[in-house]
Nucleic acid binder design. Structure first.
Lengths: 248, 248
DNA sequence: AAGATATAGTGTATCTCGTACGGAGTTAGA
DNA sequence: TCTAACTCCGTACGAGATACACTATATCTT
């Protein structure tokens, strides 16, 4: 078949497809070690802390030696995203609905645990072994529920978008009080209160007045997440019912 | 009530709240002119083309004079995002469902029209007059349908995430054949075919085999969008029905 | 063994950008 | 007229990514 395309370098590396050569000194590092360290830095200092130099320093090598493992910093980021993804939950004996709920929640949770992921194009199609496993699990479960592959793909990406949206909100609203103040939910509410007048923004003004933007402790956020998720799953359930009807 | 917080500079500027002073020469530029030019550049060359120097050059001023209007490049980006948003569709006599469908589609369309928006934290809460108008319209319509403000907010952010997700997919999949090839849907499919084996990724392998990733002309993408949107709207409809039931 | 050759790691040099700083010209109010 | 507030600009600095050339090393070939 010979349809072997040359894989982009990072991708080959993420999948452990290095053209293992025997000549010369053996590599002192692994892409895995590099991404691990980079992830540690990103978790601790944010994405801005991840510099080729800082990563190299923590590994005890020179900056330039990293370029033996990645072709650019972008490559490193791509590899980090995949490496940061945990294993997806196991379907076990769960129903499709239970599993997808679990999947979406776990998805959001690991995004929340690594907020910098949200800054690295969080919605682009997955290409690494770990992120693809997430996709695979969801597709498998949905196929088992009787949906066509195209439908399953669509649903998965919608759920994933929902998880990203929730994680982003969460991260934006829990804003650490860094600089000039108006970060976080309280600051946001104050901001809107100042800017929004009822004649131009009737809907917003009403929402502000009703306190819907009010302080949201963790459990409320959790309730919000469940609320939207239920909406989505209801829609999916309706679709599955329709499909079952058509061809039982 | 004197609770006047000092607004962050960009935000004040976006809302036209400059402490108009009379001394000195009058400004030769406007934040609006600056963002317009910056948006032109971003549309033409991508976000990377937007440099303080390139923007200034196109305006015929020195790089540093921009700092009289924005306090940093980040500020400029924030202002660009708001300026790039068109007016949201008018509710007119549409039902809530028709309107939200229109809203989501229009949302996705303007993101697709300015792909660089997807690189600038597309899911953070809106702070500009234009993006807030989008939020306002959706809230108004949902309130009219009988939902509580908190519910409406949640729904809006989910719909918005869906639009972002669709735009991102579209932009990733229509990948201009730039560099080393494997961009776009065809490339992505080829990539997966090479990487995915049926034992580790059964769901993906099946989807690939069924051709669900196959070439998707525009109309198919449109159908996909409608498909997922229907899912969401169905969920919302069920919720509204429940609410109506409870307190008619 | 003795090359020959491919590879890993490093130091230095660039290049691109954002932005701090200080100065010069400008206009309205005192 | 003097001065304060302000706009705009030129220059300088510094951060950070990466190209390049070089050295050291380990394996393969003869």
């Amino acid at each position: 078949m010979g349809s072997e395309q040359k894989l982009p370098t990072v991708i080959a590396q993420m999948w452990g497809r290095k053209p293992v050569s025997r000549r010369g000194p053996s590599p002192g590092l692994t892409l895995g070690r590099i991404t691990d360290v980079a992830i540690e830095i990103a978790d601790a200092e944010g994405l801005a802390g991840v510099r080729m130099s800082s990563v190299a320093a923590r590994l005890g090598v020179s900056t330039m030696s990293l370029y033996g493992y990645v072709t650019s910093k972008d490559d490193l980021l791509t590899a980090m995203v995949d490496a940061a993804a945990p294993d997806p939950p196991e379907p076990g004996t769960l129903t499709w609905r239970e599993y997808l709920a679990l999947w979406a929640r776990a998805n959001r949770d690991f995004l929340s645990g690594h907020p910098w992921l949200l800054e690295v194009s969080p919605l682009t199609p997955p290409t690494g072994p770990r992120t693809l496993r997430w996709l695979d699990r969801a597709l498998t479960v949905l196929a088992g529920a009787g949906l066509a592959a195209a439908e399953a793909i669509n649903i998965t990406s919608t759920l994933s978008a929902y998880a990203v949206s929730a994680a982003t909100l969460q991260s934006a609203m829990s804003g650490t009080v860094d600089e000039a103040g108006p970060e976080g939910l309280a600051g946001y509410t104050a901001l809107l209160t100042q800017l929004v007048d009822a004649s131009s923004y009737p809907g917003l003004a009403a929402a502000l007045e009703s306190g819907a933007f009010g302080a949201a402790p963790d459990w409320v956020e959790e309730a919000d997440f469940t609320f939207g998720l239920t909406l989505l799953l209801d829609g999916i359930e309706a679709l599955i019912a329709r499909r079952k009807e058509t061809e039982p």
